[in-house]
């Protein structure tokens, strides 16, 4: 009990550090005093340095926090409900749906600003997520294996169509590839406006089903005997994943690796209890994403690397090392 709280506390400290770094570091060198004053709301709008902090870095950091937490929690729930370590929010077809919708919109409607993509991403993600659930419906409940398989198949199909569209139109490829890499840059806080309700609903559902997912980990029959309404819990959990992941992908583009890696990282530290996994992933997700974002700003100065790309570079060795250390 205590050591888990301790680890969560440590995680919180680490997250705060990431937030601070995200505000302080970037391609433009801003004196620390200015960062602190601007972040605290003093001298707002005074000088270009403060403008960078409040106008660019602050929204970006908030976005990283929200998206990272959403992806982390979605990953924890996705692996919990499918009981498959290979599962992630991506597995349910959400990212592929959003990508396809956005690329189609760029192709057909000639959109060019991430803010304009949001609604298409939400719609595409939601539709694909629901479609994956429809394929997995079985005798009134969700079959977890088929949910994972159906979602993966759907992802493969949508991803290949997305590629086909981009190959058919050079302009689409040029516009879409930056969005598809997943980035916190240049989004602005207005992308969060339409997705807030989704994220909050998803988070509430995820927290609510956590104890029941613990029971489900013991097997369907045991869960039933413990009074868990198995099919309803599965549906609710899958819905939570879709809501969270749809919100995240709409805001930041398809960042794939956070949702996959965060639960594994947290599990190796806190154990498999879903009630610890959810808050743990809510911390680990943004830590990973913000750290990646900060790193992406630093390594390629004065240019930047997309956070979606750097997350994988950062998280992959971490995952490999942790897997190596894990007992089995």
């Amino acid at each position: 009990m205590t050591w888990q709280t301790l680890l969560l506390g440590l995680g919180l400290c680490l997250l705060l550090l990431c937030v601070a770094l995200s505000l302080a570091l970037g391609s433009r060198t801003v004196p620390l005093s200015t960062v602190i004053e601007a972040a605290l709301g003093r001298r707002t709008g005074a000088g270009p340095d403060a403008q960078v902090v409040t106008g660019l870095r602050l929204p970006r950091t908030v976005l990283g926090l929200v998206v990272g937490a959403a992806l982390g929690v979605a990953g924890a729930v996705a692996q919990g409900v499918t009981r498959n370590p290979l599962a992630s929010p991506t597995t349910l077809g959400v990212n592929a749906g959003a990508s396809f919708a956005v690329v189609t919109a760029i192709y057909a409607l000639h959109l060019s600003r991430p803010v304009e993509y949001v609604w298409f991403a939400v719609a595409g993600a939601g539709l694909a997520g629901l479609a994956a659930q429809v394929t997995a419906r079985r005798a009134g409940g969700l079959d977890p294996t088929r949910l994972a398989l159906g979602g993966t198949v759907l992802t493969a199909v949508l991803a290949s169509w997305t590629s086909a569209l981009m190959l058919a139109s050079r302009r689409t490829l040029d516009e879409a590839r930056f969005w598809l890499a997943g980035s916190l840059d240049g989004r602005g806080l207005e992308v969060l406006v339409p997705v807030w309700p989704l994220l909050l609903a998803g988070l509430a559902l995820a927290v609510a089903v956590a104890p029941a997912l613990n029971a489900l980990a013991l097997g369907e029959e045991t869960a039933q005997a413990l009074g868990v309404p198995v099919s309803r819990i599965r549906t609710a959990a899958a819905l939570a994943v879709v809501l969270l992941a749809a919100g995240a992908v709409a805001a930041a583009g398809p960042v794939a690796f956070v949702g996959l890696a965060a639960p594994h990282l947290v599990r190796s530290l806190l154990g498999g209890d879903q009630r610890w996994l959810v808050p743990g992933c809510a911390l680990a997700g943004p830590i990973l994403l913000l750290a990646a974002d900060v790193l992406g700003r630093l390594v390629a100065r004065p240019s930047e690397l997309e956070a979606g790309v750097v997350t994988a570079f950062l998280g992959a060795p971490l995952l490999a090392v942790l897997a190596r250390r894990a007992a089995r």
């Binding site: 290979l86 890696a261 979606g308 997350t311 994988a312 570079f313 897997a323 190596r324």
Partner: peptide, 28 residues
């Protein structure tokens, strides 16, 4: 098996990200 799968996923993610990065950075 568990370790193989996790490490495999990590290797895949890292390499896929590298490919992605190149696609983003390349001329069209």
């Amino acid at each position: 098996v568990g370790r193989l799968v996790l490490v495999g996923l990590a290797v895949q993610a890292g390499l896929a990200a590298a490919v992605n990065l190149m696609i983003v950075r390349f001329p069209a």
